[in-house]
Amino acid sequence: MQADRSAERIGDGRGSDPSAAILICDGLRRAFGAIQAVDGIGFTISPGETYGLLGPNGAGKTTTISMIAGLLRPDDGEITVVGRRMTPNSTRAKAEVGLVPQDLAIYPDLSARENLVFFARLYGLDAARRRERCDEVLRVIGLAERADDRADTFSGGMKRRLNIGIGLLHEPRLLILDEPTVGVDPQSRNAILESVEHLATEGMAVLYTTHYMEEAERLCDRIAIVDEGRIVAEGTRPELVATIGSLDVVRLEVAGDTVRAKAALEAHDEVTSVDTDGTAIVCLLPGAARALPQLLAAVAATEATVTAVEVRVPDLEDVFLHHTGKALRD
């Protein structure tokens, strides 16, 4: 029951035509001291495509996008944005990228409009274009009515929307969104997801990092599953689910010693992956309906009691479990 540590690519292995790609990353590596945060990541994104980096906290997603945005220099590998090599000093490549950092990156003492105008100037928009774009972005992010209010008077969701709006201001060819919905209320979260869907339809390439499986499933045309600085699988959602073959997911709610129960399930020949989620144990195995009585018997032998059983088809979380041997939330 070893996790497959090699990246599994589906389709052409690159996912899109590199000659038309907005972003090409090749063999990116970056270490912080003894920690290898990114270890050979490579992918491409085409115009109008939303590409997801899905992985738990600490998987290397933020380090990867920091290199793509020109904040960090890779130890090895190359990044090309609209045909221009990206480095911390390449202003022309940076002009093609819009970054929405994970943490709020706004000036709380400036109004929404002042925030937008300042960054519009940094990106070199002339006065007429600046006015036009600021008004447009304020409308898109739903802050036109509060344009002249200071950002520190905004709710968390409004600040998040302003944070995203700044990234859109100069109409970048590539928009990078780093976990933009963390800490956001459901209503604002939905508004953010709708905005991202809309941007992709307008031809913008979007790089979206998240550890929420449902966001990746909803937004992303292709998804890279990232763990310990590597892409362990990449493809569309159906392609990724297909990588785990005809496995089923069995979720057992257990009362009693879950550690012993988990060990008993791991010892079962047909089970390929096991993980715990609170009092539940999640197993991947082929032919779940046939094997279920044996699984229940194995748990019962540990003197734990199964209080509920669920059998379902796999999702991305299960794909992650299959490829890494651990749950996405870990």
């Binding site: 943490d103 709020l104 000036y107 709380p108």
Partner: peptide, 15 residues
């Protein structure tokens, strides 16, 4: 501290 430095560094200006 307020998170705006990455945005400045990502802008097309010399650091």
């Amino acid at each position: 501290q307020q998170g705006t430095m990455p945005r400045l560094l990502a802008a097309p200006i010399p650091p």
